[in-house]
């Protein structure tokens, strides 16, 4: 147990460091791989996507994920908190099913609905991603707050904490690991899903993928997809570390 606890973080941290380095190198120096892609796909006239830099695409992609996740997390945690308070308890089934509907809706369908209303580009993509990422956050907030032992809550009340103090000092810290796990799922989903924003004109790492699919350039697809995949794995490992910081006891 002790050995495992000591060994695991080091190997995972090593993985995180090397994958992050790989990601950064690929983002910055994708063009240097032109001979490799040329060798793999000799029929392509243009083996590396050059219309925008991969750095720019990656930053745009991250911005989409960041903004939509921030909205998902604030709305989702807020809704989860609301339905676990005494005053909001009766809304719990409604909020849960609304969040579930948000996720069962295919993001492409959301785009189809939102584009006529909000136009092309950044905004409809954010709407689709936010809806899509809401469910895991809401679910895990409710589940996380549910894991707080009733005895700890009773003790907190009994020794004279106010409701706000109980929430901030007892409930949230103890639910944090599960809530972060929800945010982790939400963010990872959105890193993958953000690529479809490129179909409605939001620039992202999906842009070379779409361009490649349309122009029958498999190298573009690979370049975009590898970066999205690495981004997702690196984010996942970062969240994994974060979760570990909020693990108490067994």
């Amino acid at each position: 147990m002790r050995v495992a606890a000591l060994k695991r973080p080091t190997s995972r941290d090593g993985l995180l460091a090397s994958l992050s380095a790989l990601l950064v190198l690929l983002v910055l120096f994708m063009e240097e791989l032109a001979p490799l892609f040329q060798a793999l796909f000799p029929e392509l006239g243009n083996p590396v996507y050059r219309r925008e830099s991969f750095l720019q695409l990656t930053l745009d992609h991250l911005l989409l994920v960041l903004v939509s996740s921030l909205i998902s997390v604030s709305v989702g945690v807020g809704a989860g908190l609301f339905v676990t308070r005494r005053s909001g308890r009766e809304f719990e089934p409604m909020v849960s099913s609304l969040a579930a509907i948000g996720q069962t809706f295919p993001p492409a369908a959301v785009l189809a609905i939102v584009v006529p209303l909000a136009g092309f580009g950044f905004v409809p993509t954010i709407v689709a991603l936010t809806l899509y990422g809401l469910l895991p956050v809401v679910q895990n907030t409710i589940a996380g707050l549910g894991t707080v032992p009733p005895a700890a809550l009773e003790a907190a009340r009994g020794i004279g904490m106010t409701r706000g103090q109980i929430l901030r000092r007892v409930e949230l810290p103890m639910a944090m690991r599960v809530i972060i796990a929800g945010v982790r799922v939400s963010v990872i989903i959105n890193i993958g899903t953000a690529t479809i924003g490129s179909t409605v004109g939001a620039q992202s790492l999906g842009t070379p993928i779409i361009a490649g699919l349309v122009g029958n350039n498999i190298a573009y697809v690979i370049q975009g997809a590898v970066l999205v995949g690495l981004l997702a794995i690196v984010s996942d490992l970062i969240f994994e570390r974060l979760e570990r910081r909020f693990t108490f006891g067994d």
Binding site: A151, A152, E154, A155, I159, M161, P173, M174, F248, G249
Partner: peptide, 19 residues
């Protein structure tokens, strides 16, 4: 809250804050 801070309260051991 003021009342409860004047009164000590002890329950079974799971009432400790695990974090």
């Amino acid at each position: 809250e003021q009342l409860r801070r004047r009164i000590g309260y002890a329950i079974q051991s799971i009432g400790l804050f695990p974090h």
